[in-house]
């Protein structure tokens, strides 16, 4: 563990807490893409199967359990508790265009041809693009509640923090994980447009609005 990864994980944790807080306090999941949230459940479940056979640390164990359970809880909030506030008609990104290519990529690029390793690769690839339905929705509506933008900023920062972590691990442990690194760079790059508006508008106290 190093500070970069710790900051990344804390940022990831914060993003989920911000999202749950937003849904609970506004009693609404308006502006949140159900498809993106469902993709995150897929990501966590397919990646953390090693919970059942591989022990890393107590920290690692609890974080994995937290990510799986909190992402399922968010789906519950969106589909059951606050269902009327979820508007599927603006959540129109075709996720089969993400699932298919990620599955193919996972079959080509993996560290070992076993079910769990291929699923692990799949989850890494899928995570890198899972935010697209959400960003697509933001693009369509052209605006977002401030709290939603804080959620997205924390979520984007998480993988960005992992990049210096990978550089650090390369120097100190001589470890390189090419699948995670390339996907992580793609994942972070997808947020660049968002970050630009977030830093120049939201953090200056203005509303998040995309130019018409």
């Amino acid at each position: 563990m190093n500070l970069f990864r710790l900051f990344g994980d804390m940022s990831h944790l914060a993003s989920i807490l911000i999202l749950v807080h937003k849904i609970q306090t506004t009693r609404s999941c308006r502006g949140i893409s159900f498809k993106t949230q469902a993709l995150y459940v897929t990501v966590f479940v397919s990646r953390y199967l090693d919970l059942f056979y591989d022990w890393v640390s107590l920290y690692n164990f609890f974080m994995k359990v937290f990510f799986i359970s909190s992402s399922c809880y968010i789906l519950y909030l969106m589909k059951m508790k606050f269902r009327p506030t979820n508007d599927p008609s603006i959540d129109t990104f075709r996720i089969e265009y993400l699932l298919g290519p990620c599955a193919i990529l996972a079959l080509i690029f993996h560290y070992k041809f076993t079910v769990t390793e291929v699923l692990w690769s799949f989850s890494i690839f899928l995570e890198s693009v899972a935010i697209l339905p959400q960003l697509f929705m933001l693009q369509r509506t052209g605006e977002a509640e401030t709290i939603t933008t804080h959620y997205l900023a924390a979520l984007g920062a998480y993988r960005a923090f992992y990049i210096p972590n990978w550089i650090y691990r390369y120097w100190t442990e001589d470890i390189v994980d090419p699948i995670a690194v390339t996907s992580g760079i793609v994942q972070t790059a997808l947020y660049l447009d968002f970050f630009y508006v977030y830093f120049t508008k939201v953090l200056q106290g203005q509303k998040f609005e995309l130019p018409a």
Partner: peptide
Amino acid sequence: EGNPVKHDEL
């Protein structure tokens, strides 16, 4: 059966 790469990150 060990992983070729350590999956110790989240």
